[in-house]
Design a protein around this nucleic acid. Structure first.
Lengths: 404, 404
DNA sequence: TCATTAGTTCGTCAACTAACCGAACTAATA
DNA sequence: TATTAGTTCGGTTAGTTGACGAACTAATGA
């Protein structure tokens, strides 16, 4: 009964499920008031949902005048989704239930053989997580994979992912779909991180958000109106290629990006070496800066200036509510302070800049958001025009650093 | 009857109107096939639409096997919209009917008194156009005004519009709404131009489009997924403020934009003066370039390079399908050739760049698109979730240069 | 050439079903 | 006793299905 053929019934069902999901636990009378449907219609649909195991009672109201209301909520474990963050060095898998809670999380070093071996690894980790918990694998309905590259929706290849060999020559999503037997969505990891930050911390009032990841490279995920912007060729957010900073006509700039050459790891390490003749890692340079070393300050200042100007360029094009900064370099509070100062010097208005709250779990959270939204649509809003169910995020701790 | 209370009836009505609008003239049987509704339902709704004067028969099919079908279309003049392009020197007003055809167009020099005098002028021009044609003013349902500034939706002020004095201190949209007695939508002119180019020439396959206007200033209109991107503070597309090009920390850069200083009129005129000591206008410099003068070539080349890098920056952030270039400088074919070459030198992949087809009528076309879409929603899709009716554009000549 | 017949499509009518609502009711509680 | 929750029942509306007549084209045969 949870999948009526009729369009208007599906719409009603979808609206009622959305209300229970967002405001649950909630009584049928309240749902009726909120949605505008009659109590009787709500009762009818809620009982069909209960029969099919999608909602359950969780007690009754108390203390109010009048008859006590029976209160319903979504059955959290009625279905699960898998969110996978496939990194160059580590694979993270989280199984989440319908309320966004993580029921299992595992991490492993990425299989160095690349290609199909990685597909095998992910499938094994996802299935392993269910069997450990004694959950039927069929409970998992959707898997979202964050990958460090640009997925080609037509061929299933993942391009520009130098860290995982051979993944640009296999139909990654189809192979994984066959292996897992469920719907598989492949998305760039920075894009997912942007969606994750938006879902967990910036929903509602601030619907235009850019997640800027700064580490060995620099890249952004762009969310406008709550929707991810991928671009015509999947190249949206490749801000390292903004043709300013280093001379954009040099071959190296065309290869890694003119702006990436002055903002990412190599710029800081290289700049420090030029300044001092010494080879230090980025964390070491930050330590030196905190200890008051002038060369370190100068190098970081230069990077911060270019990063600020990158943010200015982004703001000039799409004017987001907020820029969230993450990545191994971007996560440093000291750097964010400098970036804020540099924005004030280089751009006519202020741009809200924040440190990522989710750290290296942002992509995992974003994958969960995408998977849950997709699952809700598949379950309760099939073929509905303009359907875009927003699942409320779980507690922030769920996805915070150190959870795995 | 054209405004049923019931949600599902409204949805059906909206779908059927959309089908007739898009594919009309069309028979009821064809509408039934296309929409999936039964012939009866379609007949019922079409006759109520006919009764209310929204659709009309336009003959019958012929030549096909079987009974001849009665063919319907939207009554083009059942309602009108006004599209107004308020420029610093000129006010253009176009009255358009439901099929996008321009039924009247007038232009006047902008009233120099600014402020409320301009509101008066627009109201007079709109109402004057109807009385000239002997049309009841009540036929006009929506007016969209393109303005050279950033409209503040809350106060109704229009900020950053130095060419029209006092317009940043009055509630422009409310005043005009009262004067015209209809719904008034105020939007930045470059944004409307972007929507106009998208509507008339790039609908469907190419839904991510940026319109780049280059003249006394440089600015862009950003369309993603067919929707206009305004940004959190209405500042999306202010690409002149990208903090590269001129030194962004200089006061002048913070005032007019670092990139504007090296791409717009003053950069070309100033550059030419520095190069030759002579003061020439931009058209004169273009003429000199065509005549083979080296100094002119060098100056234009430099501007083209920075414009190309601006486009590269846009592409790196949102990766549009296409960048359409307009404005008094941007319209020059010679410049577009140079820009294309410079993009190839400065950016790792090609970016489709095109000259504006609509010229200085782009904003007028965009205003019409917005007004018609808004009107259709108000008439046939009130309060429908995800309603976004797309009115098919008229013949391209309708809005092409020289029409007024 | 022209009537006849077959096949196709359009559009309407009648009967039916699904969805939803409103009103009246029962139940529970401060 | 007022108020809120939830159910039952009957009715309205939207939309479907299927049968059918009307209108047409195309092929056929005298």
């Amino acid at each position: 009964m949870a999948n009526p053929t009729n369009l208007s019934r599906r719409m009603t069902l979808s609206n009622i499920v959305q209300a229970i999901t967002t405001y649950g636990p909630i009584s049928r009378a309240s749902v009726a008031k909120m949605t505008g449907y009659s109590k009787q219609t709500v009762s009818e649909i809620v009982s069909s949902l209960e029969e099919d195991g999608w909602v359950q009672t969780v007690g009754r109201t108390e203390g109010n005048v009048g008859r006590r209301a029976v209160v319903y909520e979504i059955v959290p474990d009625a279905a699960l989704v898998a969110s996978v963050d496939l990194g160059g060095t580590k694979v993270r898998v989280a199984l989440c239930n319908l309320s966004g809670a993580v029921v299992a999380e595992v991490a492993e070093p990425t299989c160095k053989d690349g290609g199909e071996a990685v597909v095998d690894q992910i499938a094994r980790m996802v299935n392993g997580a269910t069997s450990n918990l004694g959950i039927a694998p069929s409970k998992i309905r959707v898997a979202v994979i964050g990958v460090p590259g640009v997925p080609d929706l037509e061929t299933g290849h993942i391009n520009l992912a130098p860290n995982i060999i051979g993944i640009d020559r296999i139909d990654f999503s189809s192979l994984l779909r066959v292996r897992l037997g469920i719907e598989v969505i492949v998305e760039n990891d920075v894009n997912l991180a942007a969606l994750g930050e938006h879902w967990m911390t910036h929903q509602g009032d601030k619907d235009d958000l850019v997640f800027l990841s700064i580490g060995t490279g620099i890249g952004a995920g762009v969310v406008i109106g709550g929707q991810l912007v991928r671009g015509a060729t999947g190249g949206a957010g490749e801000v390292g290629f903004i043709p300013f900073g280093a001379d954009p006509t040099e071959p190296e700039s065309l290869k890694v990006g003119a702006l990436e050459r002055v903002t990412a790891t190599s710029a800081i390490v290289g700049g420090y070496q030029q300044e001092t003749g010494m080879q230090k890692t980025v964390p070491e340079i930050f330590d030196a800066f905190v200890a008051g070393e002038e060369a370190a300050a100068k190098v970081l200042q230069t990077a911060a200036s270019y990063i600020a100007r990158t943010i200015g360029a982004i703001a000039a094009v799409i004017d987001p509510n907020c820029v969230v900064i993450g990545g191994s370099i971007g996560a440093r509070e000291e750097l964010i302070r400098m970036i804020e100062q540099e924005i004030a010097r280089n751009f006519p208005r202020s741009i809200p800049v924040e440190a990522s709250v989710l750290g290296n779990h942002a992509a995992l959270a974003g994958g969960t958001a995408v998977a849950l939204s997709r699952l809700h649509i598949a379950l309760f809003a099939r073929d509905l025009p303009g359907a875009n169910i927003v699942v409320p995020p779980p507690e922030i701790e769920t996805f915070q650093e150190g959870a795995a």
